[in-house]
Design a protein around this nucleic acid. Structure first.
Length: 664
RNA sequence: GCCCGAGUAGCUCAGUUGGCAGAGCAGCUGUCUUGUAAACAGCAGGUCGCAGGUUCGACUCCUGUCUCGGGCUCCA
């Protein structure tokens, strides 16, 4: 009876009748699996469940438990979204709708440039639920590109995709190098195109696979609507993009929505206001912030720590002005490659000046101020240098993306021979400092030469790129390669940290530069008495102090560890009679270098404690009659459970000191 | 820069066919003198982002503009 045999992931094999599909296999394995099955992976390729199997194939039945299954679920939900929108908005056309992290989106073009408002999402969602309740099958068809063009004749974006794919088929190498890979992956690649039919009236161009029917879907929510350029190109039409999230179960969906709510609570812009750290008066303009005393205290501690670490590691501290003659930026190459991000020139006494977008040229001039010997190298210059960059108005975002920010910027001048070892030690220095701030998970990215927008010789670029690669490998960091993502003057490593809720933030960057030494004609005298060109390594560790502060704020959700907290302890007298003693406690703490304040007994104790808790202070110390008599404090720790009465002041000081020293 | 959305008291937000501007919290004053997450009462607080327009009359409708938010593109 059984006339084909397939292999399962566990290595076992199973016999099936001729013509059996992947779904039949799932049924044969068990009813639970058959019910949960979404797609199959046959010999490494994802296919629909109704795909017939043949003998000798390796078959894996995929459920929503796996990443691939979840992606399919999201992709299929995107199709249902398209079906709903096309039904609800006659004349609308659709572009692409891929799965993304946590969900999916679909891009639409509405007739007469109409737009969809957030309020309309409810109606679209309702229509989607109707489609899901109807349990429509996703049926796959394959046709030639020519037939595809006819089938989707009314949908210009689909036609464009088909044409792109047809073109790619004619010239495979061109397709590989082109930006159209993502589009090509929408359909099959052998000159045929595939599409799916859900109902009489709805088809969508798609490579697939899809879940068997819309009834497999349902745990989703439409999140937002936004503009997006067709194929990500600001020169092309702007489409309406609807974002949604979709999960395998109600529970997963709820958990995701809960995470989003938690993330919103940690938004640094919200916390900055609630904790009185930073504000953005509109009088200043977009992307420009002022630091209030509490925020400034945290910032000062961050900067002092940075100075301390740099000092320990043989950096020399330098300063430079905020402006320089435009010729300097001409020499450095910024006006050729970076001008669109620079604040415009200002004329003074017939001379043109630009505000600085980077600190490097100044450090070049410092290097050049004397004849340098190989004995001096490496020279490591460090500056907390404030730079100004013209960021597009739509991208400024609190402290994370601003128009004025301070870099913890270093330029390290080395010989070619010293470069690899220096880079390797820089990577470990960077990681060590980041760890001191409580980050423990990192991702790195190696960015290579940007074609067309860079200077220098291929050989130099390769050498530098290799040195960076080796440093990453030596540090044991996982990294991805961003082809063409380098700066105009050299390749770079970027290091991202993951915060407490798993989000990634780009902070550190290490960039090798063979160009600036040439542009500024930098030299050193070698052991051979000859003149040689040094190599420069640009390095920002926190990147921008502003962004770093914002990331820390979100990472800790505003509850800074004691060493960073703007106020470490509030001292609360139970009644006015204990006020003098509270002042003594504060004086004692202050004299040991701690940050503490009395909160006088104008308000009931409970209210003052609540206020201190809302400010997320590490410690609230309550002092009453017993404490005055015994020289003790009542300790209410932010992270502890309950309160401790009668702790001697000395004991508390020791405890706080340990906490500060350990950065916990 | 582009698409969409939003700007009402320090903060969070109500405010409909266009007709005198509202609440809670915060602030101030007074009373209360308090032992671990919100005492009580009163007061004050506004060119409804800004500028035009429509209207007898605009927070409300229209236009422009600024700022903010979500995206796109870009990036530390």
């Amino acid at each position: 009876m059984a006339d084909i045999s397939v292999t399962l992931p566990d290595g076992s094999s199973r016999n099936l009748r001729q013509g059996a599909t992947a779904y039949d296999l799932a049924v044969a394995i068990g009813p639970g699996l058959a019910k949960a099955a979404l797609i199959a992976v046959v010999d490494g390729q994802e296919v629909d469940l109704n795909t017939p199997l043949s003998s000798g194939q390796q078959v894996d039945i995929v459920t929503a438990d796996s990443e691939a299954g979840l992606c399919t679920l999201r992709h299929s939900t995107a199709h249902v979204l398209a079906q709903a929108v096309l039904e609800l908005y006659p004349g609308a056309t659709y572009a692409i709708g891929p799965p993304i992290a946590d969900g999916f989106y679909y891009d639409f073009d509405l007739p007469h440039g109409a737009s969809i408002s957030d309020a309309e999402l409810t109606g679209i969602e309702a229509k989607m639920r109707e489609i899901i309740a109807a349990d429509q099958p996703f049926q796959r068809y394959e046709v030639s590109a020519v037939d595809g063009l006819e089938l989707f004749a009314e949908h210009r974006y689909k036609c464009e995709i088909i044409q792109t794919v047809a073109l790619a088929h004619n010239d495979v190498s061109a397709a590989r190098a082109s930006e159209d890979q993502e589009l090509a992956s929408e359909v099959v690649a052998d000159g045929q195109v595939s599409y799916y039919r859900n109902s009489e009236s709805f088809i969508d161009l798609c490579r697939g696979p899809h879940v068997p029917s819309t009834g497999c879907l349902g745990h989703f929510k439409l999140m937002s609507v936004a503009g997006a350029y067709w194929r990500g190109d600001s020169g092309r039409p702007s489409l309406q993009r609807i974002y949604g999230t979709a999960w395998a179960s109600r529970k997963d969906l709820d958990a995701h929505l809960h995470r989003l709510a938690e993330a919103e609570k940690r938004d640094h812009r919200r916390l900055a206001r609630e904790l009185d750290l930073v504000s953005w008066p509109t009088e200043l303009g977009p992307g420009l912030a002022v630091w209030h005393p509490k925020g400034a205290t945290v910032r000062r501690i961050i900067e002092d720590y940075s100075r301390h670490r740099h000092s320990e590691s043989d950096y020399q501290f330098v300063f430079s002005p905020h402006l320089a003659r435009s010729e300097l930026w001409q020499t450095s190459g910024h006006l050729d490659f970076y001008e669109e991000s620079m604040y415009p020139a200002m004329e003074l006494d017939g001379v043109s000046y630009h505000p600085k977008p980077m600190n490097c040229p100044f450090h070049m001039l410092i290097y050049k101020s004397a004849q340098r010997s190989y004995r001096e190298l490496p020279i490591r210059m460090f500056e907390l240098g404030t730079v100004y960059r013209y960021e597009l108005s739509g991208v400024v975002h609190g402290l994370m993306r601003s128009r004025g920010f301070t870099q913890d910027d270093s330029h390290i001048f080395v010989t070619r021979e010293q470069a690899p070892a220096e880079i390797a030690s820089l990577v470990s220095f960077v990681l060590s400092v980041l760890r001191a701030f409580g980050f423990s998970s990192f991702d790195a990215r190696l960015s290579t030469r940007p074609l067309g927008k860079s200077v220098g010789e291929d050989g130099e670029w390769e050498l530098a790129t290799e040195a960076l690669r080796k440093a990453l490998e030596a540090a044991g960091l996982d990294y991805q390669v961003d082809e063409g993502g380098g700066a105009f003057y050299g390749p770079k490593i970027d290091i991202d940290v993951q915060d407490a809720i798993g989000r990634s933030w780009q902070l550190s960057t290490i960039q090798v530069d063979f160009q600036l030494p040439v542009r500024f004609d930098l030299e050193y005298v070698g052991a051979d008495g000859g003149r040689h060109r040094p190599v420069i390594i640009h390095r920002a560790l926190m990147g921008s102090i502003e962004r770093f502060f914002g990331v820390l704020l979100e990472h800790y959700s505003g509850a800074f560890p004691a060493w960073l907290a703007p106020l470490q302890a509030a001292v609360l007298p139970v009644a006015a009679a204990h006020s003098d003693y509270a002042a003594q406690v504060v004086k004692c703490l202050s004299s040991d270098g701690f940050r503490a304040e009395v909160v006088e007994a104008q308000e009931p104790l409970g209210r003052r404690i609540r206020a201190a808790k809302l400010q997320k202070l590490p410690y609230v110390l309550v002092v009453g009659d017993e404490d005055v008599f015994n020289g003790t404090v009542g300790v209410n720790a932010r992270d502890g459970d309950g309160v401790e009465r009668g702790v001697s002041l000395q004991e508390f000081v020791v405890r706080l000191q340990q906490e500060v020293n350990s950065h916990k």
